[in-house]
């Protein structure tokens, strides 16, 4: 991203302005509450929330909750990704299959995953499967759509080359389809990972059964406001961490790629 006409503010580059922004936000929050601008029965001051967040760091129950949330997230994402990649390649490499499934996919995809919450509760109760069902459903479509785009993006010349050298079906997938689709798969994985985390925490929040989401629900019903806000800050940081990790993985996996392609606006 190069841009002409940017501000020549030499001092304000690097991480400094961003840190200033965070400091300003926390400062404004603190002052607004302490100064009575915002009722502290609704929002505790920033310092109180940060102290509560730090307190969590040596709380075993908290770490078990984080472990459960991340476990559900990782397992759900792995299942969704495997299913989406396999199905995506199967459907994507056949024109007939692609057209025949189009309407069904376009119907199922926009169904909000949270619509499945009552079903999950009814069938699985508060067990891990409930959370998994939602996580998998949400992440699956994100990845599948990207894989379908990726498989269609195979360079026609490369495809002709493979045909003229009489590549078999497996060899075509291994050496042609998969490498071409990989950038899209990684994009799908990154988007799916973010959605999966949202759904993991949401499921725990609404259904219960442990995890960070349930901690939030408990903090709210128990009226522990500082803990409630601290947990929200922590889930946000967890989300940032997940995004950063997924982006790092994406860059590594695509290091061979001449141009790391943009995502499909779907």
């Amino acid at each position: 991203m190069t841009r002409t006409g940017g501000l020549p503010g030499r001092v304000l580059i690097g991480p400094v302005p961003g840190l200033l922004g965070i400091a300003a936000f926390l400062g404004a929050w603190e002052v607004a509450v302490r100064g009575g601008l915002v009722d502290d029965r609704y929002i505790p001051p920033a310092s109180t929330v940060l102290v509560a967040a730090v307190d969590y760091l040596d709380d075993g129950v908290f770490w078990r909750a984080v472990g459960r949330t991340l476990g559900a997230w990782a397992l759900g994402l792995a299942i969704a990704a495997t299913a989406a990649v396999v199905l995506g390649i199967l459907i994507g490499s056949s024109g007939v299959a692609r057209r025949a499934t189009h309407s069904t996919i376009e119907f199922l995809r926009p169904i909000p995953s949270v619509a499945l919450i009552p079903l999950a509760v009814l069938v699985y109760g508060t067990s891990l499967q409930s959370t998994l069902l939602l996580v998998i459903y949400a992440a699956f479509w994100q990845i599948l759509i990207q894989v379908l785009y990726g498989v269609q993006d195979v360079d026609p010349v490369a495809s002709d080359t493979a045909v003229s050298y009489r590549f078999g079906r497996i060899a075509r997938v291994r050496y042609l389809v998969w490498p071409s689709a990989l950038p899209y798969v990684m994009t799908g994985l990154r988007l799916g990972a973010a959605v999966a985390l949202i759904l993991a925490i949401t499921a725990e929040l609404v259904i219960g059964g442990g995890g960070l989401g349930e901690r939030i629900a408990l903090a709210q019903s128990g009226g522990a406001l500082d803990k409630l806000y601290a947990l929200i800050v922590i889930t946000g940081l967890l989300g940032v961490a997940v995004n950063l990790v997924m982006r790092a993985i994406e860059r590594r996996a695509l290091a061979w790629h001449t141009s790391v392609r943009g995502e499909v606006p779907v």
Binding site: I22, I198, V206, Q220, L231, T235, G236
Partner: peptide
């Protein structure tokens, strides 16, 4: 943008349903 970027990254990453209790 430089001022807001990390804050925005954070707010975007907060799973929106956790704000319901707030």
């Amino acid at each position: 943008r430089r001022f807001c970027e990390p804050l925005l990254e954070f707010f975007r990453a907060v799973p929106p349903p956790v704000l319901v209790p707030v």
